[in-house]
């Protein structure tokens, strides 16, 4: 482990950790309002480390014995991680292998992916450092939300709920600004998503599956119509 790279990763993870703190705070509140204990909410966050999947997960948990539904919802919501893992695997340095992949693979989230993929080469120590603050932020925020949630008025909670989406916007927009092709592909995904959301026939499909379908269809069309040039996969 190279210390300087670890520290660099640690620093890069601070904004993600702060973002997660506010987002998981909301998760903690929601979990408690559904009837979970604080330690259950915390345990979910510490073992699962994902936003949309956990949110859907606690919704399924309140129903008795819906194990298959839990599995299906998690797989469809989280299938994006498989794609992100493959993307990341293409950029790992030579020391990033074996048991380190099994351990550090746990840290792959949307935001950690976004930061890591912007590097030319992903070093093991850097990636480990990058995971630390988001993990602490996610767990701590859940704990605080579960303990203190009822203290805050609804109007503040409404404002906090938008934070995670603002973070997504902050990841998408700078990339679109540099590349109009990506902009079109992203807009296409949004258009499909709106169709699913507003056309009654599609309302029966779970929101996690909707996201996966929209994203995969848009990305396939993007890959066909606007293939990336060799050596320019992730324009900086």
């Amino acid at each position: 482990m190279k210390k300087s790279e670890f520290i660099e990763g640690l620093k890069s993870g601070i904004p993600i950790g702060l973002g997660y703190l506010s987002v998981s705070f909301t998760f903690g509140i929601m979990a408690v309002s559904l009837g979970f204990n604080w330690w259950q909410a915390l345990l979910v966050s510490m073992t699962t480390l994902t936003s949309a999947g956990q949110l859907a997960g606690i919704g399924v948990m309140v129903m008795p014995g819906a194990y298959i539904e839990m599995l299906v919802s998690q797989l469809t919501i989280n299938v994006r991680y498989a794609f992100m893992s493959i993307s990341l695997s293409q950029k790992l340095d030579s020391k990033f292998k074996g048991v380190f992949k099994w351990l550090l693979g746990f840290f792959i989230t949307d935001e950690i992916f976004a930061v890591a993929i912007s590097k030319e080469e992903i070093k093991r120590s850097f990636f480990f450092g990058l995971g630390v603050c988001p993990y602490i932020g996610w767990a701590l925020g859940t704990f605080l939300g579960a303990i203190l949630g009822n203290v805050f008025p609804e109007i503040i909670m409404n404002a906090l709920c938008i934070a995670i989406y603002a973070m997504f916007v902050a990841i998408i927009v700078p990339v679109c600004k540099k590349d109009w092709k990506t902009t079109i592909v992203v807009l296409l995904s949004g258009l499909l998503s709106a169709c699913f959301y507003y056309i009654p026939v599609f309302k029966t499909i779970s929101s996690g599956l909707q996201v996966s379908v929209c994203a995969v269809v848009a990305a396939i069309l993007g890959a066909i119509i606007f293939p990336r040039k060799e050596g320019n996969e992730h324009a900086n």
Partner: peptide, 29 residues
């Protein structure tokens, strides 16, 4: 494979977009 590479390039952004729009419009009061 350039198709797979291109697909992998686009997927994170299309996922985030589909999660954000239009769901984010309805999370505040």
């Amino acid at each position: 494979n350039n198709f797979i590479k291109s697909f992998l390039y686009y997927i994170p952004y299309t996922v985030l977009m589909a999660m954000t729009f239009p769901a984010a419009l309805y999370v505040t009061g």
